[in-house]
Write a protein that binds this DNA or RNA. Structure first.
Lengths: 241, 241
DNA sequence: CGGGCAGAACTAGTATACAAGTCGCTGTCG
DNA sequence: CGACAGCGACTTGTATACTAGTTCTGCCCG
């Protein structure tokens, strides 16, 4: 039972399985900011040795989602507003550049995919996690219109902090309807060929996260990193607080 | 003697030392595209165990600089023109967005740093590696002007393929004078407040790499990945070819 | 009862051992 | 002479052992 946590019949290496599992749990806040991640403990819980766990933590540390303190411990990093802003800038730059680079006539099948995606977003009472996945696919689809879908992978790898902030904002709003309207506006402008309006709408849409950060930080400051150079505390204190 | 290759008195972990060494050697083509990287061999040569070598290769693989084929081998990836274009798009998007976001009045000390940098670039007979470092610092400095220096780290991590292509172009041109002129033009326009000209000049500057790729690929196709899905060959064939 | 020091218990970093798979070479058989 | 089977030398993936360091804990002493 224990050994099956990472997936029994996957062809992929266990490192990849562990990595994807941990990344998902961090991004969904199932592993909250500040949580201690013991290599030994994770290895035992997932039924693998330290090696794949450790390699996964190294990759997550490279993304900024985890902080490793040698001889002390590894911890889920707190959401850093500075990194949120950095990732937002990068993302906005890429998505706006893609809008600028739209071809005169769009690929009809890609446009249809986006329409289908938007329809799904409009489902009443949609699960927030499902909406989040559709949101990601929508933006990736927009990049695809201009032939720059590959850039999305880099953006994804860099926007871990941003995603956690967005998710907090989404849970807080409890309804994604405002985002759906913005998505529709961007899509309509892009397909109509109104690059200027598409740009403006995209900017507004992507910058909404800044409001979320401020609002949620006031209520739940423990999720965010403070200015003080905080030194990690040992497990017995940090683990379930 | 052998054990000192990774650095004797560094405080950093040996993983970091190995990673930085390998990354540098790949980017400078000292380890040419297609070269086989045996974990055991590297470990022996660097005087460390497989562990830090392996973890470094995983990180390099994540950047796309190395390809790992389980049970077959690890190889320096060939320069992929598609990935060069992807990285170029990302980089251009970020640098142009930064130029759009320049404050009305620039930080004088940052401007001075850029001027000093440009002067150094103009040294006659400058070493190409030194120029490359100055080039990197120049572009990072431009980002700093708009307060988005942190985005540079992400760009750097994503532009491994691009950097190798740029380096090939630089070695091919044998003189960086054309680049220096472009840098000067961008800098002058930015400090003069002419955002439009700065954008145009930056675009031209950053897109020069496409010409390099075409020209060098015609002469040295073995450095680039071909369209065919090439399967790696074993060491005994690939190693010193 | 309080303070300080020693050691237990934990951490990650590194080294080594083992497992599982790929592929080239060679010897043998058709 | 050619095809093929099997052995062996390699590869990376995973597990385990050991090292060096940090921190909490609890005993001992004042």
């Amino acid at each position: 039972m224990i050994a099956s946590v990472v997936g029994t019949n996957t062809k992929k290496t266990s490192r990849r399985a562990v990595y994807e599992l941990l990344r998902k749990r961090v991004l969904t806040m199932e592993l909250p900011p500040g949580a201690a991640l013991s290599e030994n403990e994770l290895a035992a819980a997932l039924g693998v040795s330290r090696t794949p766990v450790r390699e996964s933590l190294i990759l997550l540390a490279e993304e900024g989602l985890v902080q490793v303190f040698p001889q002390v411990g590894s911890f889920v990093s707190r959401v850093d507003p500075v990194k949120v802003a950095d990732a937002q800038f990068l993302r906005e730059a890429v998505e706006l550049a893609a809008l600028d680079d739209l071809p005169p006539v769009l690929d009809p099948s890609l446009v249809r995919d986006l329409e289908t995606n938007l329809e799904r977003q409009r489902q009443p009472g949609i699960d927030l996690e499902e909406f989040f996945a559709l949101d990601e696919a929508f933006h990736q689809g927009l990049l695809r219109l201009s032939g720059h879908a590959n850039a999305w992978a880099t953006v994804v790898a860099a926007k871990g902090h941003l995603d956690r902030a967005r998710r907090l904002g989404l849970y807080d709003a409890s309804s994604p309807s405002a985002f759906v309207l913005q998505h529709t506006e961007i899509f309509d402008a892009a397909t109509r060929g109104d690059a200027q309006l598409a740009r403006t709408a995209m900017r507004t849409h992507l910058r909404a996260v800044f409001d979320d950060v401020e609002r949620i930080r006031a209520r739940s400051p423990e999720l965010f990193s403070s200015n003080s150079t905080s030194v990690p505390t040992r497990r017995s204190i940090a683990v379930w607080e």
